[in-house]
């Protein structure tokens, strides 16, 4: 059992938890993830490590309520525990050796972009952090992000905070204005990461995206997390989750992300499920 030491509601859909897992906290690096299972009948889901405290022995996860497992998890409180918590999995991000980096986060993706920006900042790299949200009330981690970059640019789709528009527009403006980045990191929905990668391609700026496909074990055993990268099949769990955005086949990744849509619905509609009716989307 892995105890929930702290729970913080970041907005009405996104929740932060610190989980006691000292051995994982000791080894965790930005870019890596954990797999958890809330209870015995539960599904194994991957969540990126949003932060870690090696002294306190805690690992921070930030998740959006998008399905049955995240809904169940959101109902756990401080002092409760999750049944299984395995990690740190995947390869750590390569963040050394850069001068100026643009970190682009979309929605929940900001929770994953944050530790990367933090590490870059610690390494003395100049960081522009472009964070996009649908609307003002969905903004998360604003203060934390501000602390780990040189420029924080917040955009909202509806203009309710920061500038109105998409992260790609903000990145594009800077590129047009002649800002030189030697790396762009894009983390968020597949459509957003594809758009950022397309934007940086003509500028030949190396662009790293973080893939988050369905997976079971997270150790290379199931192969469910296959991603086509430069014409080769890679496993996001062991080869990634970071990949070259210019080589990822986003079209197939987007199609693969739809495979269990029907089943996700069925999971909620099960008469035995006490979360029934929680999702009408």
């Amino acid at each position: 059992m892995y105890r929930i030491k702290r729970k913080k509601v970041l907005n009405d859909q996104i929740i932060l938890m610190d989980i006691k897992a000292p051995l994982i906290a000791k080894k965790a690096e930005p870019g890596q993830f954990i797999i958890l299972r809330v209870n015995e009948a539960g599904e194994r889901i991957p969540l990126t490590i949003a932060d870690f405290d090696r002294d306190a022995g805690t690992v921070t996860i930030i998740f959006q309520i998008v399905g049955k497992t995240t809904k169940l998890l959101s109902e756990q409180d401080e002092g409760d525990a999750v049944l299984d918590f395995a990690g740190p999995l995947g390869m750590a991000s390569h963040l050394a050796g850069y001068q100026k980096v643009a970190v682009v986060g979309g929605g929940l993706g900001c929770a994953i972009a944050y530790p990367q920006a933090k590490k870059l900042h610690q390494l003395g790299v100049k960081v522009d952090l472009i964070a996009g949200f649908r609307s003002k009330h969905l903004i998360i981690l604003e203060e934390q992000m501000r602390d780990v970059c040189d420029n924080l640019i917040i955009t909202t789709d509806d203009g309710s905070n920061g500038t109105k528009g998409f992260v790609t527009e903000r990145l594009s403006e800077r590129l047009e204005a002649g800002t030189k980045y030697d790396l762009v990191i894009a983390i968020g929905p597949l459509f957003m990461m594809r758009a950022v990668s397309e934007l940086t391609r003509p500028h030949s700026i190396p662009t790293v995206v973080s893939m988050n496909p369905v997976m079971i074990d997270g150790t290379g055993m199931c192969g469910g997390c296959r991603v086509c990268v430069g014409g080769e099949t890679k496993f996001a769990c062991v080869d990634g989750p970071d990949f070259d955005g210019h080589l990822v086949d986003f079209d197939s990744a987007i199609l693969r992300s739809t495979f269990y849509k029907d089943k996700e619905h069925q999971s909620f509609e099960d008469p035995g499920c006490r979360l029934r009716g929680a999702f009408d989307a």
Partner: peptide, 30 residues
């Protein structure tokens, strides 16, 4: 091979045996 509906035997069997997909939706893994 990356189309939806193509499984490695490992994934197919793991979903069914380890994650008890045959009890879905009583177990959460489909």
């Amino acid at each position: 091979e990356n189309l939806n509906g193509v499984y490695s035997a490992n994934e197919f069997l793991t979903r069914i045996n380890l994650m008890k997909a045959y009890r879905f939706p009583k177990s959460d893994t489909p």
